[in-house]
């Protein structure tokens, strides 16, 4: 599955546009890490626990979007966008969406 946030894949022709596909994932870090992050907030610096949380979450969301595209019969996803929103205190949602397309020669 080719994924790009551009309109087209250079040198490849889009045969079919299959519309929106999307993946989302909501995650929370456990209370202990929340507290540690609170301490870190006082001194600044990277919040490793949260970086990791959002990274895992983004991977899962992407995986889900790919599953949808596969089910639609696509071999590439173009114009992919990520959006992040915090749903409730301590829980963040990663949302990713794009256009599923069929390319002529995906290799």
């Amino acid at each position: 599955m080719l994924i790009s946030n551009m309109e087209f894949m250079t040198g490849k022709k889009v045969l079919k546009h299959l519309g929106l596909v999307q993946g989302s994932s909501v995650r929370a870090k456990h209370a202990g890490k929340d507290i540690m992050a609170g301490f870190k907030n006082m001194f600044g610096g990277e919040l490793k626990a949260y970086t990791e949380l959002l990274h895992e979450s983004r991977e899962e969301a992407t995986e889900r979007m790919v599953q949808q595209a596969e089910a639609a019969g696509a071999n590439a996803i173009l114009n992919v966008r990520y959006s992040t929103s915090s749903i409730a205190a301590g829980a963040a949602e990663i949302y990713v969406y794009g256009t599923a397309v069929v390319l002529d020669n995906p290799e």
């Binding site: 989302s24 994932s25 209370a31 829980a91 949602e93």
Partner: peptide, 17 residues
């Protein structure tokens, strides 16, 4: 409760979907 332990918050998934 999930916030206490961390991990995937499945109860929000259907809501957002």
């Amino acid at each position: 409760l999930r916030n206490l332990f961390g991990g995937k918050v499945s109860s929000y998934e259907t809501l957002l979907d």
